[in-house]
Design a protein around this nucleic acid. Structure first.
Length: 547
RNA sequence: GGCCCCAUCGUCUAGUCAGGUCCAGGACACCGGGUUUUCAACCCGGCAACAGGGGUUCGAAUCCCCUUGGGGCUACCA
């Protein structure tokens, strides 16, 4: 049976690169009818947090990547948090020492640093000087008593290491490139390279699909497998997803974009900005100077305050920008993989069905958010209405939108009349006007000028006429509204736009809304008339000034 | 610096392993046009690539070498 795993370290949000790794592993397991395991690599106590782990789990679930074994659901090979598996690792480390394949070391980080620098000065690769005679267990205990750091190093065999990789082919590493490496840290925890090997073996993982950045780790991991006579899984090192700003996608991109935006905008009140994000002025200054890095919610708050769009990096970022998980799943899966049939738009079942590890791309790829948008537009159409409603409700709640007041029936209707929208955010934005108090409409100056005031305030005049007709209309139905407005346009020998746009601005403050007849009906006669009156009153004087 | 990986339109890619069917196909973006009550969607059309140089071969995007470019790794992080 095929067994794959995704093994994130819970040091932050799940970002799109990690998600891609998870997706490929999940796809392969599902394609083969195998098992997908989730394991949390939290051996770095300094950086791992429980909150981050919870976030990662919910991000995976949002994407629809359900695991068969792992946190929350357990399984026969647990525990699934590495921090809870220390005894297991210790057993194997002791075994390696007994076998003479690993040995104790007592160097301080400073000692190592010096050796490294010396090697660099001689332009040599750093190889840890393996001692002639290995320290005994007694030596290790004595050293510990004296307060020396005790670590354990794995011996690297003195022969070329060969990695057979599904994506890269056969890759060979010369022995003088491979140094004895630490498998047990002085805090007693295993290093990543050690823990993965043990866990993958114990959890019977058959296929390791991970980023190319792990290719160099493989010879080390294979050395442990060989020494312990563990089976070698099949490796597939995928290409890396890079950012359009160059280099691999990084969490730093968001704060950096924000920093640049703050610097480039003149009209920002630093005091107000700091306050809106709950920072002191000093903290804000430090951030701008690049000296400190606030938490993500703080970054988000500031971005919203000054109105800049930060590039989405984390899975939650995409959620909060109104993307569908189906679209993100599809698009991410297609980054570095193309199905044999060549069709790009696929839903989960089709992805699973056509996924093939042998068709992974070798070269790195750039995450193109524009193409994601196109995929999202497509999936907005593809997703079942009930599913879309579910996504919308979740989204509205997450961004704390006034549109969340709508009941299911209304919301479903709003979704329907906005077919063709690119994101949930687009729909939310377009429908906000329905949930706004009449007096609190924000008028976009450009819209007002263009639609109402220009050409001798024709728009405003039309509004008077429309108001009268609307008030006289017996019943607000789409058909009667359409008849009325089209008739009006005909009477005055103008296009429908000349009638509809002023109305739209009066109702929404902008030139954008759902289809106009629907919009009027939804807003209702009373509110529509009220907004027309407010608009007329507000801009009549402006119109006379203008002309 | 050392080691490793990669190289087709602006971007993601098909084609490369089994050389001819490829003056290179698709998608996104972009540009032009159409439809239209706004935005979006939709329809039609267009632009656009085998990084460079050597080989091998009757024939190379495909095989080999070099150059250049990009990326990754070089931790008591994962």
């Amino acid at each position: 049976m095929v067994v794959t795993r995704f093994a994130p370290s819970p040091t932050g949000y799940l970002h799109i690169g990690g998600a891609r790794t998870a997706i490929f592993n999940w796809l392969w397991a599902r394609h083969k009818g195998g098992k997908f395991i989730l394991r949390i690599e939290d051996t770095d106590a300094k950086r791992s947090t429980e909150a981050a782990m919870t976030q990662v789990l919910s991000d995976l679930q949002w994407l629809g990547l359900q695991w068969d074994e792992g946190p929350q659901i357990g399984g026969p090979n647990g525990p699934y948090l590495q921090s809870q598996r220390k005894d297991i690792y210790d057993k194997y480390i002791d075994q390696l020492i007994e076998l003479g394949r690993a040995y104790y070391c007592f160097d301080t980080p400073e000692d190592i640093q010096k050796m490294r620098e010396a090697a660099a000065a001689k332009k040599q690769n750093f190889l840890y000087p393996r001692p002639e005679k290995f320290p005994s267990k007694q030596d290790a205990e004595n050293a510990a008593d004296q307060g020396k750091p005790v670590t354990v190093r794995m011996i690297m065999p003195d022969k070329p290491a060969v990695v057979e990789d599904l994506v890269r082919g056969t890759v060979t590493f010369a022995p003088d490139q491979l140094s004895d490496f630490i498998i047990k840290k002085s805090d007693g925890m295993p290093t990543y390279n050690f823990a993965v090997v043990i866990d993958d073996a114990l959890m019977k993982v058959t296929h390791i699909i991970r980023g190319q950045e792990h290719l160099m780790n493989t010879p080390y991991q294979q050395a442990i497998q060989d020494a312990l006579e563990l089976p070698r899984p099949t490796y597939a090192h995928m290409s890396v997803t890079v950012s359009d700003s160059g280099g691999k996608l990084s969490k730093r991109e968001r704060p950096e974009t924000l920093r640049k935006a703050i610097k480039s905008k003149q009209d920002i009140d630093p005091e107000a900005l700091a306050e809106s994000a709950g920072l002191t002025k000093q903290q804000l200054d430090d951030f701008i100077a690049g000296k400190s890095m606030p938490d993500m919610p703080v970054i988000d708050a500031m971005a919203e305050k000054i109105g800049v769009h930060l590039p989405e990096i984390n899975v939650v970022d995409f959620f909060r920008s109104g993307y569908l998980p189906e679209a993100l799943l599809n698009f991410t899966a297609i980054l570095g993989w193309t199905p044999a049939h060549g069709k790009e738009i696929m839903q989960a079942e089709q992805l699973v069905e056509s996924f093939d590890l042998a068709r992974l791309t070798k070269s790195n790829s750039l995450f193109d958010r524009k193409k994601l948008l196109a995929f999202n537009t497509e999936h907005m159409r593809l997703v079942l209405p009930e599913k879309l409603l579910e996504h919308m409700k979740k989204y509205l709640e997450a961004i704390d939108s006034p549109v969340a007041q709508a009941d299911d029936e209304l919301l479903a209707h709003l979704l329907e009349i906005n077919a063709g929208a690119r994101t949930l955010a687009d729909i939310e934005l377009k429908c906000r006007f329905l949930f706004c108090e009449n007096e609190k409409i924000q008028y976009d100056p450009k819209a007002v000028k263009k639609v109402l005031l220009k050409k001798d305030a024709q728009g405003l005049k039309m509004l008077h006429i429309v108001r009268q007709k609307l008030a006289d209309l017996a019943k607000l139905e789409e058909s009667t509204l359409e008849h009325m407005l089209r008739g009006l346009a005909e009477d005055y020998q103008v296009g429908l736009g000349k009638v509809a746009q002023p109305l739209r601005v009066a109702m929404t403050g902008t030139t954008v809304s759902p289809p106009i007849f629907e919009s009027i009906k939804l807003l209702g006669r009373e509110n529509t008339l009220a907004r027309i009156d407010i608009t007329i009153e507000k801009f009549t004087k402006a119109a006379s000034d203008e002309n």
